[in-house]
């Protein structure tokens, strides 16, 4: 109980400054959003086109399994020791994108492939070109699955950005690692609560978006 009240005291007293909650929260948010956009720009076109053509399925599906076996922390430290490590947040951004791409790619591919083949054939029979089929039929029907991939990627990004603090990156994880260095349990717990709430908010946001999305698709 003592720890909880101490953690609450810490939470209420440390919002300002370079090590303050506001600064770390903004860093975390910016990192997550920027990397999510970069990852989507890389993964979605590839996943959608592969799914549309029905090619490269083994790659698109297995890349997720490979991503799971590689420890995030190890990748962060490896990148830190390479020349990329000299560019400030460089290793963090690269690692975040690396871990966000697999779920995006896999879900986009699977979503495209799971579109009812009869619907696709009907679209082709109506004389739609490949491009029209992709944008008017397949993508709208695959949207729930694609959004699910974006949600998984976003949650993964928040988690990876937290671990980045272990390797010197910014973000909310920094509050936790600083707490460990100071042997201050209240600060560690306060940081952990912030990270957990942030992750759950992101998850909740996407869950709401997913609930609203099918209505547009099945208009």
């Amino acid at each position: 109980m003592k720890t909880l009240t101490d953690a609450w005291d810490w939470l209420t007293a440390h919002w300002a400054g370079d090590d303050g909650i506001w600064h770390r929260l903004t860093q975390h948010l910016v990192l997550t959003v920027v990397c999510l956009v970069i990852s989507c720009l890389i993964a979605l076109p590839v996943g959608l086109v592969l799914g549309h053509l029905g090619k490269g399925g083994a790659l698109a599906v297995n890349i997720s399994n490979v991503g799971r076996a590689v420890p995030t922390f190890a990748v962060l430290v490896l990148l830190l020791l390479t020349p990329i490590g000299k560019w400030g947040e460089g290793p963090t951004v690269v690692a975040l994108v690396l871990f966000a791409v697999p779920p995006l790619l896999t879900n986009a591919y699977v979503g495209m492939r799971e579109v009812d083949r009869d619907v696709v054939r009907a679209a082709r029979g109506m004389g739609m070109t490949g491009r029209q089929m992709l944008w008017r039929v397949e993508v709208p029907l695959a949207t729930p699955m694609i959004l699910n991939g974006v949600r998984i990627a976003a949650v993964q990004l928040v988690a990876t950005a937290t671990i980045a603090a272990l390797a010197g990156g910014g973000g909310l994880g920094r509050i936790i690692t600083a707490g460990f260095n100071l042997a201050s349990t209240p600060q560690v717990v306060a940081g952990a609560v912030l990270v957990a709430v942030f992750a759950l908010l992101v998850e909740g946001l996407f869950e709401t978006a997913e609930r609203l999305a099918p209505k547009r698709g099945s208009r």
Binding site: T162, L166, G173, F180, T185, V189, G191, A192, V195, A196
Partner: peptide, 17 residues
């Protein structure tokens, strides 16, 4: 699902006390 959403570093930290 909620447990799974919490990042690992935060999870370990929450269990610290």
């Amino acid at each position: 699902t909620v447990l799974y959403t919490i990042p690992s570093l935060a999870m370990f930290s929450l269990l610290l006390p």
